[in-house]
Design a protein around this nucleic acid. Structure first.
Lengths: 239, 239
DNA sequence: GGTATAAAATATGTAGTACATAATAAGCGC
DNA sequence: GCGCTTATTATGTACTACATATTTTATACC
């Protein structure tokens, strides 16, 4: 049952930590570890893998960051239940993402918001619509909104953020919160290029009305229309 | 390290590695490190942070996993350009994701495929359509396709995978490849519950025709229709 | 003087030891 | 049995030493 890690595999091109990391994952999967199960102590892991405790700890630290394992002082380590993005969002920062990735993420946002229409209609509650309406009302009554681009951006983000929240999909929400800074950056860049508000023909108020009385299909197409300025940017880039 | 009894450190329940990790990130951001810039040697980092080299290395190892830094033997460490999901996909495995997260991911897939229509139309090339057509043709001529659910699933995945590839959005593609195992799992589960193929009224061939001759809007709505069986599952779950 | 080769220097990679910390279990006086 | 102290145990942190790879410098030789 226990595997023999003595077998030679001196493929040293990949860092040892990475190998250990993979080995541990493989070990966990092979033995069908489930949430709550206790892992061997790191000393044993290290010895069985033929590496120093230091290296084993580095690998385990990575798994810990990803939320795959948790460790307590005397109890040892147990399998945990991460959600997709836990651990990553803390560290992943737009400052370190390349231009291309930023672009990808921006597109991803467009895809998500157009695509999530049905989910929104399945999960929407009357309170959500009230909240959206409140945002839109405040936005329309705010005198700064036409002047200060920052203010306008804030409303924009607040509105769209609540849409993600309405999805009741935690992964989706966290993803959006990760993307927010990137979104910010791209929007500001766009805004700098073309000073005109350049709003689509569909306003936030229209979107609220649609989600209130319309169909998922209506909302999807209206959202697409609302995002038209951004899409046009993509089309321009193509050529 | 000597302990300072005069200052009552507020709750230290955050592991040191995590603190160091955050500190390093903060340091990099504050000093506006750009891709290719060299980091201080880990000894210095450790000393400046007042921690052992070991801890510093663990933190750096995490950043390395995320693709934020790279290190070479004598040259030291330099800032690298990660894309959103690098490093994560290697380790994150559906075996360790909770039922709820799996559900979230499955929904995410529905959202993405409905939402990516416009991107597809912007980026599509005639060769892509040929490829899709080829898949569909093979699928329709395969006698096993009606019997073996595995075979049908393979075609399903092949077809939808190419859609992601057509987006030419690397982040999106890698995301999909991450999601693939989950997708597999959920599909099999669905298939087990209801033995009937339960296909939507829109076939893969219809989708190909639409992407060839239709509009983004058409494709969007057809894809939505194609995915109807899955959406109905969501609606059932709501009640 | 120029090229080739050897040696030194340097930062990361790996190993090993020692001790601190926290949480649990065991022991013990009563 | 209760309440206390004391061991025990696995993770957390620190420190040291050496390996490895790569650049720089030095040296030898023609």
């Amino acid at each position: 049952m226990e595997k023999d890690s003595k077998s030679i595999k001196p493929i040293k091109n990949v860092p040892l930590v990475e190998q250990v990391e993979d080995h541990i994952m493989q070990y966990l999967k092979a033995n069908k570890f489930k949430t709550g199960d206790a892992l061997p102590k790191e000393i044993e892991l290290a010895q069985n893998l033929g590496v120093s405790r230091n290296v084993a700890r580095e690998a385990l630290s990575r798994l810990r960051m990803l939320g795959i394992i948790e460790s307590k002082k005397r109890k040892g380590m147990v399998i945990s239940e991460p959600d997709l993005l836990s651990g990553v969002e803390r560290v992943l920062d737009p400052d370190f993402l390349g231009e291309g990735t930023m672009q990808n993420i921006f597109e991803l946002r467009l895809v998500l918001e157009v695509g999530m229409s049905d989910i929104l209609f399945i999960r929407k509650k009357s309170k959500d619509i009230d909240i959206l309406q409140d945002i839109v009302t405040r936005e329309s009554q705010d005198p700064e909104c036409t002047d200060d681009i920052k203010v306008r951006l804030a409303y924009e983000i607040e509105f769209h953020s609540h849409l993600y929240r309405m999805s009741r999909n935690n992964t989706l929400q966290r993803f959006q919160s990760m993307l927010l800074p990137v979104f910010h950056y791209m929007m500001e860049q766009e805004a700098r290029l073309e000073l005109k508000p350049k709003k689509g023909s569909i306003s936030h108020q229209d979107l609220v009305d649609t989600i209130k009385n319309g169909t998922p299909r209506d909302f999807r197409e209206n959202m697409r229309e609302h995002l038209t300025p951004h899409y046009q940017k993509l089309i321009r880039q193509k050529s």
